[in-house]
């Protein structure tokens, strides 16, 4: 793959506080509350750290509408970084985003991403990127330790509370949890210079195509799917019926109580006592 030339941070411009109508399932965006998610901020921080420890330059890249350049200016505040913007729809699918980003990331030693984007929340762009770049992937990292240039040891969370340690070598795509690092504060001089920093815009032919094979039928608010219930073990039909309907179980009808904190605390203590949790 040649000699790694730089570290990249793939940063997504997302609305951090979108207004979601819980009934209709519509989402209202506001550019002012849009920017770097905590996970992408952590990714940027790790890009800066890797750049420092391996003495490689850092590039920040985003795919999105023109407003998305705002996240590049965040990155620009930290010094001389290459800033690249690729035009893409806000809602473009992950594989399209990865295809748009990948040609611009060739030669990166490590591409740092956030683990999930707040809106789509699929965590799949980094894996698609790894595919296109023929890079190793290490996703959902909680911590990483750079070794000699191009090599690092990373830790990630598995399910059931287990953890995994990975040896990763360049070229690699990593994604980090929001807690993996806290982004440093940009110096004032950097922030002022960032306003004037030049952003490269990727050529139009590198923009993704949306000849998508997936069609959106409609969007609704989240409603839980009825869960499959295990049939009760009792053999008698009557007992099964009772168990299924919960007719004789002690479950109390749901209660909604509006009260000041003091009274609410009394309610809670009463509830715990009634149900045998407190003596």
């Amino acid at each position: 793959m040649g000699v790694p030339r730089y570290i990249a941070a793939a940063l997504k411009w997302v609305d951090l506080r979108p207004e979601v109508d819980p009934l209709a399932g519509t989402v209202r965006h506001d550019t002012r509350t849009s920017g770097l998610s905590l996970a992408d901020a952590a990714a940027l921080e790790w890009a800066l750290r890797l750049g420092e420890s391996w003495q490689l330059p850092v590039a920040a890249i985003t795919a999105g509408p023109p407003e998305a350049r705002a996240v590049l200016r965040d990155a620009a505040g930290f010094g001389p970084t290459r800033l690249v913007h690729v035009a893409a729809d806000r809602d473009a699918p992950s594989d399209a985003i990865a295809r748009a980003l990948a040609p611009l990331l060739a030669g990166a030693a490590v591409v740092c991403c956030g683990d999930y984007s707040a809106d789509r929340g699929s965590g799949s762009v980094p894996a698609f990127l790894a595919h296109h770049l023929q890079a190793a992937q290490a996703l959902g990292l909680t911590s990483l330790a750079p070794e000699h240039p191009g090599s690092l040891v990373a830790q990630r969370r598995l399910d059931g509370g287990r953890r995994e340690r990975l040896q990763v070598s360049a070229p690699a795509v990593i994604s980090v949890e929001p807690g993996a690092a806290q982004l440093r504060r940009a110096p004032l001089s950097g922030l002022l210079a960032a306003g004037r920093a030049a952003v490269e815009t990727a050529a139009a032919d590198q923009a993704p195509e949306y000849g998508s094979r997936v069609h959106l039928l409609r969007t609704t608010s989240y409603r839980p799917r009825p869960k499959v219930l295990a049939p009760p073990r009792d053999q008698l039909p009557r007992a099964r019926l009772l168990a299924l309907t919960g007719a004789l179980s002690e479950r109390m009808p749901p209660r909604v109580v509006r009260a000041a904190p003091e009274q609410a605390a009394d309610q809670l203590i009463g509830y715990l006592t009634d149900n045998g949790y407190l003596g």
């Binding site: 979108p18 399932g25 707040a118 997936v214 069609h215 959106l216 039928l217 989240y222």
Partner: peptide, 11 residues
């Protein structure tokens, strides 16, 4: 989507 606040129905 959106942390499970909404559902996209797709085909």
């Amino acid at each position: 989507r959106y942390g499970g606040l909404i559902l996209d129905h797709v085909t």
